[in-house]
Design a protein around this nucleic acid. Structure first.
Lengths: 140, 140
DNA sequence: AAATATAGTTTACATTCGTAAACGTAAAAA
DNA sequence: TTTTTACGTTTACGAATGTAAACTATATTT
């Protein structure tokens, strides 16, 4: 099976810019990140290069200031990361963790409605209790 | 300000065991993790030592097989991690991310009720829309 | 065309992490 | 009490990450 590349925290910041803009030149990324962080331009260049090596980013070679395009969708990457983190949590505590998240995140009315709907649907088949499996061998 | 230590993925697995048991000897941790992973005993020992250095774990020196105790609460650590991840996501997409999470996690009836309640409360003051701030300088 | 500025690539280096062997010391067995 | 076993500590080493300087090639200005 193919090696699954992961994005580091710093690399993620670069992707955010490019995802938001749809595509971007290194100059754009650098300008924005120099405001958000105290990284120097060469640092950001390194991140862009690593993202290309990891196949998260592709440069449009053609005209000279290259234009970089994402090779993965933001939603997919978010999904991946968030799920990856939750996989490592104690099952019993995921509900609480989600509750924390809701409390500390800004969420739009539309999203809230959707979440309630998802939960309501989920309630129809949800177990009374979720058992902790932290000591059990992972069924792989 | 004091250096904020972070737990690596592998270290987290060790903590899970100890959190669940309340306290544990290295032998217990090793036995369980040898079933869950293919780490060798010395690898697990290293993780325990690093966790002590990082002040996540403390050994009860007194009787000889040391008994290790967590120095941070599981809920706090989860909170920390989950929030840390969400801080790096595009605001606009947090709702969606939480929705994904709900769909892919087992959650108990009780927790679902609680979540709906939190959301309902939140709806009272939630904005119509959340703006993306991925290109803005972090206000720090 | 030469000089300069831009932007992409290579190299660098310390730290953390995954992974574990080797080593030393205390406890248990012979 | 000597031997063995269990367990804690030190050392090791490559890969990934944060961080960036130096170098090179292309584009722009003079």
């Amino acid at each position: 099976m193919a090696e699954v590349e992961t994005m580091s925290k710093a690399e993620w910041q670069v992707m955010r810019i490019i995802w938001t803009l749809g595509q971007a030149t290194s100059k754009q990324v650098i300008e924005i990140l120099e405001k958000k962080t105290d990284w120097k331009a060469p640092t950001i260049k390194t991140l862009i290069i690593r993202l290309q090596k990891k196949n998260f980013l592709k440069a449009d070679i053609g005209t000279r200031p290259y234009v970089y395009h994402p090779l993965v969708a933001e939603d997919d990457a978010i999904h991946q990361n968030v799920n990856d983190l939750f996989d490592s949590l104690c099952c019993m505590r995921k509900g609480m963790a989600i509750n924390d998240l809701i409390e500390s995140s800004e969420i739009s009315q539309t999203d809230i409605t959707k979440l309630i709907e998802t939960l309501t649907k989920k309630a129809r088949t949800a177990p009374e209790m979720v058992e902790c499996n932290c000591l059990e061998a992972d069924l792989k």
